[in-house]
Each structure stands twice: as structure tokens, then as C-alpha cells.
């Protein structure tokens, strides 16, 4: 579904990604695990095209989309949910969803406002509220719902549980599993191993801009030495 090969990215003179490689199979939840500053966010931004990769391939459904404009990549079926949410604060919930709307894709039931409100019940009552006047958890749900309006076949989530209350985190995990059940491929950037383990099928551990380990989630959980070396603070 999504195959990243030797991705390099820079911000000006700072070389952030040094050849990131991993792959996510159709319908699975792949967790990109790493500490702060490891390169998780830059990897996701490089995939969606907000950061133009200096080298490497981003193969989506067999097509190399590296270097495309972000809107073309999004239209190809890749959805992106940024870490800092970036909701349109002056627009209502319904208008935020409208901005994300894209044509339906063959083989996937198209997302509608009603289906998204079923997935995130909190949003239903806030339909006409300006997004800037919602809680952090509600904004996080909105930003995922907004991206789903584009009917992506693969969605990139950047630390969706960060800074949220435990009850909301649990809802978020539910939502991710619901997406998986819909057949959406999920790439989740995360530093919280506990949350990652609750939703992930496989993991890729990233450190200083390189993937240093990848394999089944269960294998990572069984390898205390690996976790201690690369994930614990």
C-alpha cells in the first residue's frame, strides 16, 4: 500500500531524515515509534509533500509520489492529520468538514457528515460551533474527521493522543480501530508505547532520522532491551 524507501529530508541546512525506509500493508495499523525529535513528524510531512524530500521514494499503490504537490498526493488517496491539529478556527465544524471533502473512491464507502458524527459523537452536537471554541480533544477529533472527508485509503496520524485526557485517548484508540475495520490503512506516529500497542499491528522504530527496527508489535513488546535502548526516556 505505502512503501517508503531511503527518504532524505532537510530543513534548510538541517538534515533531518537520513534514509527512512518502511512499508505499511493494506488495512493494517503501522506505528512509527520514536522519541521527540527522532523524525516522525518530518517523515509524515515528507510523505504528504509538505516537506519536499531531498531523495528517496514514496510509493503509494505502486506510484512514486515523492516530489508531487501536496494536493495531488492527497487526491491520490493519502490523508494527513497534523500533530498541531491545524483546524480552521474561524470556520464551524461543518465548514471544516466541507473543506476536507473530496470525491468518493471506488471500493470504499464514502464518508459523510452523518457517518463521521457516528464515529465521533462529541462532534455531532457542535456542528455549528466555530472550531476555535472547542476543547483540545474535540479539535483532535475534528481534524481526523476533516481528513476522512477526503475518503483516504491511507491516513497518516501524527500523535493524535498527545495531551488528551485518558477517556478521550481511549475514544481515539476506538476510532483508529474503527478506521482499520473500514479497510483504511493507518500510519500512526507515536511516542507513547502503551497507546501504540493498543492499536498497532506492526511497528517501525525511528531514531535520528533512520528506521532502526521494524516488525510485529508483539515482537517489540517482548524485546525489553530494544525498548530500553530506543524508546524509554
Amino acid at each position: 500500500m505505502l512503501e517508503i524507501v531511503g527518504l532524505h529530508s532537510r530543513y534548510g541546512l538541517a538534515h533531518i531524515l537520513h534514509g527512512v525506509s518502511f512499508a505499511a500493508a493494506a488495512g493494517e495499523v503501522l506505528v512509527l515509534l520514536g522519541r521527540n525529535g527522532a523524525g516522525k513528524s518530518t517523515t509524515l510531512k515528507s510523505i504528504i509533500g509538505l516537506v519536499r524530500p531531498a531523495a528517496g521514494r514514496v510509493r503509494f499503490d505502486g506510484v512514486d509520489v515523492a516530489g508531487w504537490e501536496p494536493h495531488r498526493i492527497a487526491r491520490a488517496g493519502l490523508g494527513y492529520v497534523p500533530e498541531d491539529r491545524r483546524i480552521f478556527a474561524d470556520l464551524t465544524v461543518a465548514e471544516n468538514l466541507l473543506v476536507g471533502r473530496q470525491p468518493a473512491r471506488p471500493g470504499l464507502a464514502p464518508w459523510t457528515e452523518a457517518r463521521l458524527f457516528a464515529l465521533f459523537p462529541n462532534l455531532a452536537t457542535l456542528r455549528d460551533r466555530p472550531a476555535g471554541r472547542m476543547s483540545g480533544g474535540e479539535q483532535q477529533m475534528l481534524t481526523i474527521a476533516r481528513t476522512l472527508m477526503g475518503n483516504p485509503r491511507c491516513i497518516l496520524l501524527d500523535e493524535p493522543a498527545e495531551g488528551l485526557a485518558p477517556v478521550i485517548v481511549a475514544q481515539m484508540a476506538q476510532a483508529i480501530l474503527a478506521l482499520k475495520a473500514e479497510g483504511v490503512t493507518v500510519v500512526l506516529a507515536e511516542q507513547n508505547l502503551h497507546f501504540a500497542a493498543s492499536v498497532g499491528d506492526r511497528a517501525a522504530v525511528i531514531e535520528t532520522g533512520r528506521v532502526i527496527w521494524s516488525g510485529p508489535m508483539a515482537a517489540l513488546q517482548g524485546d525489553a532491551a530494544l525498548r530500553a535502548a530506543h524508546l524509554h526516556l
Binding site: 509538505l50 504537490e69 501536496p70 494536493h71 492527497a74 494527513y80 497534523p82 466541507l98
Partner: peptide
């Protein structure tokens, strides 16, 4: 209109609008 909504969204964050598949 959707166009108007897109314009207002782009006024706030045009990069995010692009990442949602809108041709800026």
C-alpha cells in the same frame, strides 16, 4: 459556497488546505 469556505480556510492556513487535497 464551498469555494468561499475554501477561501476562508486558506486565509487561515493555506498549507493545510493543500494537504486536504485542494489545489491552491
Amino acid at each position: 459556497t464551498r469555494w468561499g469556505t475554501l477561501v476562508r480556510a486558506a486565509t487561515q492556513d493555506r498549507e493545510m488546505v493543500a494537504a486536504l487535497g485542494v489545489d491552491q
